[in-house]
Write a protein that binds this DNA or RNA. Structure first.
Length: 641
RNA sequence: GCUGGCGUAGCUCAACUGGUAGAGCAGCUGAUUUGUAAUCAGCAGGUUAGGGGUUCAAGUCCCUUCGCCAGCUCCA
């Protein structure tokens, strides 16, 4: 048979050769690292004998599919160990997930995380035995008989669905353990040396809250001890950077508790961070051709009935009655912007019209989903709405994408673009006609293509009123977060009958783009805190400079320095407490203050200061002017776009 | 919302099977006049989240409300 490789070269092999043998033919290293193969675009086990001509791709841990196979295989290994230690355990499902895998079980009397050691020991034993994973195809009836005999009721439920879908049935076994599984798997349990069990949690069978709750065990597995270790230390680091912890330590904000779950109280230091972010945002938006507006926090319910949000999101809104009317706390800002747009008859000469507002919105989030600043019930959307003609769509979208990337670049976030499309299987969820959707989705794709930005399309992620471009931002630990979102909307302009008069004197339908770059100011600050581990860049640092006179005899000089820095718009304070210098430096360091200016007798005599920079350490004495210059550079606000 | 866990001083945590709520840091007062990550001493700080119950006796056991944490479902 003739086998083609990804580089387009080809080679003859005897029929019945396996992917593993082909990998070994290429190099021993590849054979060692290979996990599964893609043969004629189908994923299969390395040990599967191949008989036909075709193209092959050997997949390792570097490939997403290879990683998945390794992780999924490990979930089988764990399931086997759990079932062995806790007879009577029924199996749910055990997929690979980003960064690991899990398996859902119904375990009678599971004692919890304390028994991880026992499970790990059993898994290690099986890794050592290096038992092969064996695939077996069988008829539906055979499979039912097999799992009935084992009492695996969940598997029987899954089987029913596979029958309805007309899929062929395969099972994988290693040793005594058998599981219904599509595969592929790595060749044997010996591949699974570098695993760790991480946590346990409850999870509904099939993710449905009406079903019974199973025990889910999370774990992860890597191809090498170094990669496993790196991942585990990343998890540790993430814990240290938790914005809730840092927010409390740095006295940035309070959230929940007596103040009400999901509600944020910004402390003075946190308010400075907010203000800086918001001020820069405002300046940048004005420069980019936006007009700032401001709209109320409540609005009559009729507005949300017209927009369609009442029908879609009523359960997540807060209502109040005023006089004889019903009002709602705004869950979004755009109706206010629509009212502003409709304030007068609009001409094509005014378009594109870009309105922007840092608007606080309130959404009822279920109590269990609240999470620090990342998920709250009241938050500030840095909202912008662009009203434009059809011809302007592509250019406006591109401008917004560039603007969004400008913001991410300020903070050194990486990014990944997703184009969220409608789900053609579920047209009822979306407002508007499918052909309109198709047209607009193509326009968004065109906008990205022209810019040369890579993106991936995600079907079914669109908002009900239109497709969107989501930019996920990547932080210093490599984690992705919800970032800027650019939502096209051809629906709401119709509902609100938004028009403009064209140069032909006729009224035309206007098009609308919703966009947020920080997303939520609250969540964005949460992201920044974790991204920078609390060491915010100078311009955002609540306290930028602390001045430390060594004794009270240098207090006068310190006050002089303070007044110079204050006049230069630097946030500084003197710490002249009756404590040792070491004590006060320690406090400034733990408060993550970027700059410390220490003034002793020597400095007073020579009009200099000793500069110490947070984390870096002592920079020694220098002329005051020189130190001020370093501070000014370190606290400089970002350039406008 | 669901399942599970947790709630002790401003913060971090002690208090064996029910038996007098304690420490460090922070705070306040005083001494010390300090040269690059914690000077010393003293003082004060609590309805053990709220409510109810069992008991001679409850931080500890039971019920309940609230809040927090993890995960699930959800996230315009």
């Amino acid at each position: 048979m003739r086998i083609k490789f990804p580089d387009n070269s080809a080679k003859e092999y005897e029929a019945g050769t396996t992917g593993l043998e082909i990998a070994g033919d290429i190099s021993q290293g590849l054979a060692r690292n290979s996990l599964i193969v893609r043969f004629n675009s189908e994923l299969c086990d390395l040990t599967k004998p191949l008989y036909d001509d075709g193209s092959i791709e050997i997949l390792t841990f570097r490939d997403e599919e290879g990683k998945k196979a390794l992780r999924h295989s490990c979930s089988h290994l764990m399931a086997c160990a759990v079932q062995k230690l806790y007879p009577g355990t029924r199996l749910g499902i055990g997929p690979s997930i980003e960064d690991g895998f899990y398996y859902d079980f119904n375990i009678p009397e599971f004692p919890g995380i304390s028994v991880f050691k026992k499970i790990v020991a059993e898994m290690k034993k099986q890794v050592k035995e290096n038992t092969p994973f064996i695939r077996k195809e069988m008829s539906f009836e055979e499979a039912v008989a097999l799992f009935e005999q084992k009492g695996e009721k969940y598997k029987l439920e899954l089987l029913e669905e596979l029958r309805d879908a007309g899929e062929s049935i395969s099972v994988y076994s290693h040793g005594e353990f058998v599981d219904l599984c599509r595969g592929p798997h790595v060749p044997s349990t010996g591949y699974l040396k570098h695993f760790e069990l991480l946590s346990t949690a409850g999870a509904y069978w099939r993710g449905d809250e009406n079903n019974e709750m199973l025990t889910r065990i999370y774990g992860t597995v890597f191809d090498s001890p170094a990669n496993l270790k790196e991942h585990l230390s990343m998890l540790e680091e993430a814990k240290k950077r938790d914005h809730r912890k840092l927010g409390q330590e740095l006295e940035l904000f309070i959230i929940g508790g007596d103040g009400g779950p999901g509600l944020t109280y910004w402390l003075p230091a946190g308010t400075i961070v907010r203000e800086e972010l918001e001020n820069h945002w405002k300046k940048a938006h004005i420069k980019a051709g936006y007009q700032l507006v401001s709209t109320p926090h409540i609005a009559p319910v009729g507005l949300w009935k017209t927009s369609g949000h009442y029908d879609y999101y009523r359960d997540n809104m807060y209502f109040l009655s005023i006089d004889k009317g019903e009002y709602a706390l705004k869950p979004m800002n755009f109706p206010g912007h629509i009212i502003i747009y409709k304030n007068s008859k609009r001409s094509y000469r005014e378009l594109p019209m870009r309105l922007a507002e840092l608007g606080m919105v309130y959404r009822y989030e279920k109590s269990g989903v609240l999470h620090g600043l990342m998920r709250v019930r009241g938050f500030t959307v840095d909202d912008g709405h662009i009203f434009c003609t059809e011809d302007q769509i592509v250019e406006e979208i591109q401008k917004v994408v560039r603007f969004a990337l400008y913001f991410l670049n300020i903070f050194n976030f990486g990014y990944r673009i997703e184009l969220s499309l409608m789900d053609p299987e579920d047209p009822g969820h979306y407002a508007g006609k499918p052909e309109e959707w198709r047209k607009v989705q193509l326009a968004l794709a065109k906008a990205l293509d022209e810019m040369g930005e890579a993106y991936r399309s995600v079907v079914g992620e669109a908002v009900f009123y239109g497709p969107k471009i989501d930019i996920k931002m990547k932080d210093a630990l490599g984690r992705f977060w919800q970032g800027p979102t650019i939502q096209f909307d051809f629906n709401i302009p119709q509902r609100f009958n938004l028009t403009y008069v064209g140069n032909d004197g006729q009224e035309h339908r206007v098009f609308m783009v919703h966009r947020a770059l920080y997303g939520s100011v609250e969540r964005f600050i949460g992201n920044l805190i974790e991204h920078y581990a609390g060491n915010l860049p100078g311009w955002l640092a609540p306290h930028q400079v602390v001045i430390l006179p060594i004794t009270e005899y240098q207090l006068e000089k310190a006050e002089e320095v303070e007044s110079i820095l204050t006049s230069l718009d630097i946030r500084c304070a003197i710490d002249s407490r009756n404590e040792t210098v070491a004590y006060r430096i320690r406090e400034a360091e733990t408060s993550k203050i970027p700059f410390m200016l220490i003034i002793g007798e020597r400095e007073v005599e020579s009009d200099s200061v000793a500069l110490r920079i947070h984390i870096e350490g002592d920079r020694g004495s220098m002329k005051l002017d020189e130190a001020i210059e370093i501070v000014m550079v370190g606290c400089r606000r970002p350039e406008l776009p």
